[in-house]
Design a binder for these strands. Structure first.
Lengths: 138, 138
DNA sequence: TACTAAATTAGAATAATTCTAATTTACGAT
DNA sequence: ATCGTAAATTAGAATTATTCTAATTTAGTA
């Protein structure tokens, strides 16, 4: 199990290895995202934390930053049956519980869910990814 | 295999059996939705067909109608990794291919996909539904 | 230290959807 | 058949999430 500092360090290293510049805003956002290890955030969540910390990062930057971290494999984005995009600090292949009442995501490790039969992929297309969401109620 | 008229008749009967009133607009929209059997529509798709047919149904009504048909089990709604809600005339339990390039949905029959292992449902929650989306590229 | 492409920013723009409040309609009761 | 009423429809405003724009600032290389 990694400590939160290790998660942050690792993510900052990925940022350095990416073509993205290491700006103050990106470092602050990465610290917020990875301060609790694997976690899920909406843009709103991140922006709220920024305000609470007294940091001054515009909403546009939060969007830009999260999108670019996603494009560069530092976080992952997840769409759910509510209308917001969630950003996931767990970039390994995995699936999700989604609780409709509380609008929260919970990771399902790959090894804990198994598909034993898949349909034939339509002609001319190729498999990109399989997303499984197990919807929960309270 | 049902004919399109049979699909329409069946849906209109479900409308009659529901607490919803049988209005001209709802009948027109059901005819559009079910005229090709199982199919997927965005609100925009439906509204375009309405315009093309020279019908006069406001966008608000299309939204209201599709939402209420969904609430009453006459259609199903599907969220995809693009940001639109799709309405699905197939109300049986099934899954989807989603082609990211063309933004199209294709049904996967329940029997053609099988989950052989499921994680433990978190305490205090209960299983609502499992949504599997097999994302495709061209 | 200076240069330049990239990043940040505020605010406008867009896109999908929902809300509002006035008008119209479906349909059960008369 | 007609009436009364709750439900449905409507146009347009409002909201929500997100992206765009264009001016300013900054990171990192030369």
């Amino acid at each position: 199990m990694m400590t939160s500092n290790e998660y942050i360090k690792k993510a900052l290293q990925s940022l350095k290895n990416s073509p993205l510049k290491t700006t103050k805003q990106r470092v602050d956002i990465i610290k917020i995202l990875f301060s609790e290890g694997n976690n899920h955030f909406t843009v709103e969540d991140v922006h709220n934390k920024i305000e609470k910390l007294g940091l001054n990062i515009s909403l546009a930057t939060v969007y830009n930053c999260l999108n670019q971290l996603t494009e560069n494999g530092i976080v992952k984005s997840v769409k759910t049956s509510c209308n917001k995009i969630y950003f996931d600090t767990n970039t390994t292949s995995h699936h999700h519980f989604f609780c409709k009442n509380s609008s929260t995501l919970i990771d399902i490790e790959s090894k804990n869910i198994k598909i034993s039969k898949l349909p034939k992929i339509p002609n001319g297309k190729k498999l990109d990814s399989i997303e499984i969401v197990v919807n929960l109620t309270e």
